[in-house]
Amino acid sequence: MDKSLVWIFFSALLINNFTLSYFLGLCPFFGVSGRIATALRLGLATIFVMVITSLCAWLLNTFVLPYAPYLRLISFIVVIASTVQFVEMAIKKLSPGLFRALGIFLPLITTNCAILGLALFQTSKGYGLLAGLVYAVGAGAGFTLALVLMAGLREEAELAKVPAIIRGTALNLIIAGLLSLAFMGFAGLFSSSA
């Protein structure tokens, strides 16, 4: 039991990294990864939203959705939108500086597909409450890791001599491709226990 929880965590963190192998959450991944500090804070906010979403998704899956399966998408998205609203108010109250630094990307967590993806994958994999929470923390940490690594690489790329035409999105995509290639190396990590 314990071992499988550890496996869920590391699998979501490294092997099936949400951003680099499932392509979830690419908008903030390319939008906010200019600076390491901002990237880290957005990552932490995302982890928090993910954990609450995972809890709510479990509640919905257990108590509501067996009676109305066609409401799955709509109820998930409403839960996510209200959670984000709540986190936004909390951050605004507790840390106005962070609130300004995150700007538009805070409300945009609502349309971060990683969050809805988490709720859907958790449902389709049939995780219980505890496994779901571990999965959420792992996935959020994986997103944060990818975001921070990408921000570091992009800060370096700013200084490199690159032809003007490749600068911008094309360069970022190719950097992300190399990062994703590097993460594929983790695939053998758990092959024996999987």
Binding site: G168, L173, I174, A176, M184
Partner: peptide, 18 residues
């Protein structure tokens, strides 16, 4: 595999920009 997606889209964008 996933890396190919990133890299190929990057290259397509490059051609488009050029």
């Amino acid at each position: 595999l996933p890396p190919g997606g990133f890299i190929m889209l990057g290259l397509l964008l490059l051609v488009f920009g050029w």
